[in-house]
Design a protein around this nucleic acid. Structure first.
Length: 447
DNA sequence: CTCTGATCATGT
DNA sequence: ACATGATCAGAG
């Protein structure tokens, strides 16, 4: 089937809404296939069954005459009814030897994926793939977010130019990720400015970005009313801008300045958090402040730094649920979380061992996790899985009880009298949280 | 000192 | 009443 105009293509595509995959699978591709092994299968079903293209995968754009690439991707419904993309959208492969001679505008990825027809289906773990419902579609143009994509592209290219392709991480960038793309985890390729063999990677639209454009599509009317700013290229730029006037001041001075109240002896334990909530915004309010926040996943963290430059504490994350550990690491919530999330770390420096409240705003740093970190995190994850299987608290990877060179550990986080470890298996929501070790923080903060 | 389980202040 | 982010505080 050929389409002469975008209009024609979209008009035809409108008929796909409300269909399940089995309804359009005229080539019977779904008959005896497993979705886990063949990730592009649902895309093939749409190509052959709905658009009647022959089964062959050449590298030309799917709708060649219109320069439009077809993408079929899933979303899931959260418990509260909101939608989120199930996965990142993988684009073309990164060629480390060529990227150094490209600009974003001349790049392979923009050449192939500038315009994409994205078909959305609702993923439902209780259903078989053939029964997934296609509910929406959109003609998407990458140049809509050109400024940030361009900046992301330069970040990726910069690492390759530095001979650090093996240190690439999805968290380095805002929207355009460099995700791993390998047949096996030991697969390696070459890079131009280092002998270290990096993992093969592909450009991707990050999971949080996909969630952002999905919500724009579905919630269009409301979003148009509050069209937010697009002033900054990265979250860290935004945060530094908001904190600029307060560097060199103590926590108490800053809090007094922004609240107009006085704090003499009683310092709120969460004073740093009160400050970042006020000056930067609470996580849930940020999407309204800058479009960047609607399409990225990041967390604002506060960290006391000792006089030797090292962090005083580990860094904590959300409490874990037993159900987080039902899948393999590769498909897990936590792998995705650590892979994609950028930590924005607001540093407060101690002077003469100053206690909380009297540390000085000194720096803002960014932490992302690379392949080595994730490999270590995987061990922690698997050990928790094992502990759950065996119902054995002593197997839990606490810092006292973990393995050698552990980077991610668990620690109690309860209310008074709650014995987090003893009660670990009693309910889905545990009283235990992930923490990253001080050792890893030292490494990440380049101390 | 460091380590690690426990606790606090806040927001919902 | 509980989750979160972060610090506290006793043991060694």
């Amino acid at each position: 089937m050929k389409f002469r105009t975008e209009q024609e293509l979209l008009e035809y595509t409108s008929n796909i809404k409300g269909k399940t995959f089995k309804e359009i699978d005229s080539e019977n591709l779904l008959a005896n296939a497993s979705l886990n092994r063949q990730k592009g299968l649902l895309g093939h079903v749409v190509e052959t069954g709905f658009y009647k293209y022959p089964i062959n995968s050449d590298s030309k754009a799917d709708f060649e005459e219109l320069d439009i690439e077809l993408k079929v991707t899933g979303y899931v419904k959260n418990k509260n009814g909101s939608l989120r993309a199930k996965e990142r959208l993988v684009l073309s492969k990164i060629n480390y030897n060529e990227i150094i001679n490209e600009t974003f505008e001349s790049s392979h990825v923009l050449g192939k994926c500038k315009k994409m027809l994205i078909i959305w289906y609702e993923y439902d773990s209780t259903k078989e793939a053939k029964d997934f419902l296609i509910t929406d579609y959109q003609l998407y143009d990458m140049t809509n977010d050109f400024k940030i994509f361009n900046n992301d592209f330069e970040i990726i290219k910069g690492k390759v130019l530095d001979g650090r392709a093996h240190e690439l991480s999805e968290g380095d960038t805002s929207y355009l990720g460099a995700c791993t793309k390998a047949r096996t985890s030991s697969d390696r390729t070459t890079q131009p400015f280092s002998d270290i063999l990096p993992k093969p990677r592909a450009y991707s639209l990050k999971n949080a970005y996909m969630t952002g454009i999905l919500r724009e599509l579905i919630e269009k009317p409301t979003l148009l009313e509050i069209k937010s700013q697009q002033e900054f290229n990265t979250v860290i730029e935004y945060v530094k801008d908001k904190l600029e006037a307060y560097f060199g001041k103590t926590q108490v001075e800053i809090l007094e300045e922004i609240t107009g109240r006085e704090y003499d002896e009683i310092i709120p334990k969460n004073i740093s958090k009160m400050i970042s909530d006020e000056l930067i915004g609470k996580d849930e309010d940020l999407p309204k402040k800058d479009d960047l926040f609607a399409k990225t996943s990041f967390i604002i963290k506060n960290l006391p730094i000792k006089e030797d430059g090292k962090p005083r504490e580990r860094m904590s994350f959300k409490t874990i649920s037993l159900s987080d550990f039902e899948t393999d690491w590769e498909d897990s919530y936590w792998k995705n979380y650590f892979e994609e999330t950028t930590l924005i770390v607001i540093c407060y420096a101690e002077k003469n061992k100053s206690r909380n409240g009297f540390r000085v705003l000194s720096d803002v740093k960014q932490i992302t996790f690379d392949e080595n970190d994730l490999e270590s995190f995987e061990k922690t994850y698997n050990q928790i899985k094992l502990a759950i299987e065996k119902k054995d608290v002593n197997l839990l990877p606490t810092s006292a009880n973990g393995f050698k060179n552990q980077l991610l550990e668990i620690a109690p986080k309860g209310v008074k009298g709650d014995d987090a470890y003893v009660n670990f298996f009693k309910r889905d929501k545990t009283k235990v949280a992930f923490m990253i070790s001080k050792k890893l923080l030292v490494n990440k903060l380049n101390i």
